[in-house]
Design a protein around this nucleic acid. Structure first.
Ligand SMILES: [Mn+2]
Ligand SMILES: [Mn+2]
Ligand SMILES: [Zn+2]
Ligand SMILES: [Zn+2]
Lengths: 138, 138
DNA sequence: TTTAAAATTGTAATAATTTCAAATATGAAA
DNA sequence: TTTCATATTTGAAATTATTACAATTTTAAA
């Protein structure tokens, strides 16, 4: 994903007033590209922002998604994850260690048949299996 | 997906004792390929099986998934859906009408670099957009 | 400084799912 | 066929994720 040099400017350009909480949450997303859940974000940030409310994390992420600077990753039911990289890319979840890996793919040669005349807005490709690390551990 | 002539046999072959509830729930899945939620299944079946418990629907679906005759569809956070077609195929959700369409795709030539040595168990491709029907309604 | 709007917060409400123990059904052995 | 162990189903309670909402705080313009 493209580098973001100044979070404050980046938020402003996206039409988001850069409040302290919003900056911290977005910084968290780009520093922790491991696709965190709301709970992970809240637990990690609240030591630094003692007044932080979990509702603010929910509100802020929803706002980010609406404004197009964050995408939701639904690779597993029970856990909604967030990704500041909104480009079309795939996610691999290792069923052993739980890590989620990004990967790129060509959506040109998917050769999709039945939905040719449909208007595509978002493509999500999720793959589950065993990562190289875990495979070698045996 | 391949035709299932006899649900009782199909369950048995999958290592599932074909109880009344299990047969009805699986029949529902193959008759309603619209990827229903637990709630849809429960609400539609309880008039015919008045003693049915929602816990049974949860238990049974989890069992089906473990035994490999049902897959979970996570195209939207907030709603876990189920699909008796366990073959690798894609799902398109229309953001206007909410319908979910099946489609096929080639997973051979995805050209994935980053996860070449990973062991792939499942591939889920989710696309969101506007279906042909809704596009023409304008 | 005053003031209105925007953002944040905390609590309560809602919804989805899981846990668990009791009740029921099933099927083999006696 | 009765008995008994096991598997399945059930319903209630507990847990977890998320949303609604009103009160408080912050922001920035007048
Ligand atoms: Mn990603
Ligand atoms: Mn399907
Ligand atoms: Zn792993
Ligand atoms: Zn539609």
């Amino acid at each position: 994903m493209k580098q973001i040099q100044n979070v404050k400017n980046y938020l402003t350009e996206a039409g988001i007033k850069p409040s302290y909480q919003r900056i911290k949450i977005f910084e968290y997303l780009i520093e922790n590209m491991n696709h965190p859940t709301v709970d992970m974000i809240y637990k990690d940030l609240v030591p630094y922002i003692p007044t932080l409310s979990k509702t603010t994390v929910y509100n802020t992420l929803k706002f980010f998604v609406d404004k197009g600077i964050t995408q939701i990753i639904n690779i597993e039911d029970n856990e909604t994850r967030y990704d500041a990289d909104t480009s079309t890319h795939g996610h691999f979840k290792c069923i052993k260690c739980g890590n989620i890996y990004d990967f790129s793919f060509d959506n040109k040669n998917l050769n999709i048949k039945q939905i040719e005349n449909f208007e595509i807005k978002q493509i999500h490709l999720y793959i589950k299996g065993i990562c190289e690390n875990c495979k070698n551990k045996k």
